[in-house]
Design a protein around this nucleic acid. Structure first.
Lengths: 371, 371
DNA sequence: CAGACTCCCGGAAACGTTTACAGCGATCGG
DNA sequence: CCGATCGCTGTAAACGTTTCCGGGAGTCTG
């Protein structure tokens, strides 16, 4: 003996048919009442009662199929443990929520197949739009992006001709800010702990670091460069290596997680920060300010990038015919205690970099100064 | 002039009808080929070609409506910036992925209306199941939980009679472990920085702390207790307050974020950790090990709780008729440098707590020891 | 060569909702 | 008092997919 046809769903849950039948009205009337449009007082009463009795809860999937929208926006990031994405997420969430939608987050874990699979899966209409911040970009990616049935906005560097909405920063320039600051405060042997060179940010930071040194006419000692991944453990290990084979008086780290790892290694090795070694991170996450001493960090405007990306996405959802747009958020440098002290031997050098300079407080301050 | 009926979707994208028409076959055949079941070689070729030509991508919503499953599992947490949830998420993700599903995360931001709204929205079939870790639980919550059309597993304390799958820990006992450890290493004036008392974990930790002191016959100086929220800034501020009006020789913090804030305040005030003040956090997140000195922390088995919750959820998705189950993960204490030193004045006291004791290394060690 | 079996195909019915449309009685204006 | 208007209702057609089922062609077996 089966359930009554057209009365309840396959798993026995009530549908609008159930409610309508119980209330003695048509499904159209039931639906109208449940959506709060129309209906005579009597009908409203009956339908409400029936819905409550059977514990009706609408099937959002069916509704979405009909209405062609889900009210969801997805954010796909590499590593949800990285506070930089937390900052982005909060900014995005605020914008998305203001449009009455909800944000869902997915961590891709850097597995590239996972990322394209995600695009194909979530993007296939499960969400109204999606923001993705990949650290590696392949042709496969791009194909999936442009072929996506739902609007996609990319945060991060992308090929110049990619016809995709894109919000980026200039991390090369960000690295330059940090290098200039360190040189200006008298540091001469600047170590550099980077992430993988086959990632977009890793490559950009490497290029930026070399260019900045070259601009100052400084020869780069390769012993001062270490590459790991973008995690804490790698930063700590890299700093240990680096200290063992060279004697940096400053350390620039490709993100704050690495910098925190390096800080641990430095303190554990008995080096004082910033007196012996100055330390600068990147991303300017809340983590940087949690440390003692607080870490100087290059802000790549993650919250701002998130906010702008969300706005671009909402605009495109509203009007999918918009041409691809690209926005750029300028980097800035937050100088804090970890690089605040000017070395005694510091002699100011000519400044070949156009644009504003970071102030160089003589004493470590616990407040960040943005250059 | 409208689009051809039954050929492409409302927004002009190809549907299975488009592909079928182009390939000169029925939609049934097209669907079969696209799903890789059946079809003559010739049909397969034609359909594949047609699909490629028009750039067909299946509509997952429609598919889900038909198949009654979405392949998605949701995790709803309070604050995605808290590393304890990152650990949970990773554990859950691993289990969920092994079942061929994808995990999506949603941050509720602690806004309670948001949380129930989320339940009503995501749970209404957008996902196959959901794991939620609320810090405040109201009757409204419970109602939404039991009335949910999709399986729900709750991580955290819940009313004893709530008919919902539940994975919990015993945070009162966790607090006791920390208090015992601190007392055993000679600390006598233990400060306590807690989160809001109207949250489930806040209340439990408060009760646990008072009970533990009472069990040792120690009078609690209320000046040693401070309440904020579960964030870094609150922990830092609370520690400042606490140092100003009392002189603790140890600080127990309700989670690691608070503990990191307290560490900052202590170091900034010139106190040595652990020599002057021992510090113990809770949740044993990766953050605890990132600090220098590394923080002792009460592990509440977050990864394990996540793993178990995911398993419970998958079981329930497979068989929704299962009775509600409840699992408990025991807390343990990871002793690290921040509380490693035994005070000179320490005199071992009788141990009124049954169960294992934390070892008390005489020197701070950088490796955690789990009691 | 008849029958059974296999394989492939197309028509059509779901899945659960929203909504265009038409019908109906009651109200209102002239 | 009659026709137009209005509010409410129910029927049915979507949304895009999967899948049951029946039919037709071809192959194998006895």
């Amino acid at each position: 003996m089966g359930r009554k046809r057209l009365q309840e769903s396959a798993d026995g849950r009530p549908t609008v048919h159930t409610v309508a039948a119980r209330a003695g009205v048509s499904i159209a009337s039931a639906s109208r009442v449940l959506n709060g449009v129309g209906g005579s007082p009597e009908t409203v009463r009956k339908v409400r009662a029936a819905a409550a009795e059977v514990g009706y809860v609408p099937n959002a999937i069916a509704r979405s199929l009909q209405s062609q929208r889900t009210g969801l926006v997805a954010l796909a990031v590499e590593d949800i443990g990285n506070p930089v994405y937390v900052a982005m997420m909060r900014a995005i969430e605020a914008v998305v929520a203001s449009s009455g939608r909800q944000l869902v987050v997915h961590a891709t874990g850097g597995r590239i197949d996972n990322e394209t699979a995600l695009l194909r899966r979530l993007a296939n209409r499960y969400v109204d739009g999606m923001i993705i911040s990949p650290i590696r970009v392949t042709d496969d990616h791009l194909g999936a992006l442009v072929g996506s049935p739902v609007p996609v906005v990319v945060i991060g560097q992308l090929g110049a001709d990619a016809p995709v909405d894109n919000v980026r920063t200039d991390s090369r320039r960000g690295v330059a800010l940090a290098v200039d600051h360190l040189l200006a405060t008298g540091r001469r042997r600047i170590g550099f702990v980077n992430g993988p060179l086959d990632t977009v940010p890793g490559a950009a930071r490497d290029a930026g670091f070399r260019a900045a040194l070259a601009r100052h006419g400084i020869h780069l000692d390769e012993n001062l460069v270490e590459v790991g991944d973008f995690q804490y453990a790698a930063g700590r290990a890299a700093a240990v290596q680096l200290l063992a084979r060279a004697s940096p008086d400053a350390l620039l780290c490709a993100n704050d997680l690495i910098a925190v790892g390096a800080l641990h290694a430095l303190l554990a090795a008995g080096r004082r920060v910033p007196e012996d070694v100055a330390l600068v991170g990147m991303d300017d996450t809340e983590l940087a300010q949690m440390m003692f001493p607080q870490l100087s960090s290059v802000s790549l405007g993650s919250a701002e990038r998130g906010r702008r990306a969300a706005e671009l996405l909402l605009q495109r959802i509203a009007d999918p015919t918009l041409p691809p747009r690209r926005e750029q958020v300028p980097p800035s440098l937050a100088v804090r205690a970890s690089s605040g002290a000017t070395l005694p031997a510091a002699r100011p050098s000519a400044d070949p970099l156009d644009g504003p300079r970071a102030p160089t407080p003589t004493h470590p301050s616990s407040e960040g100064v943005t250059a």
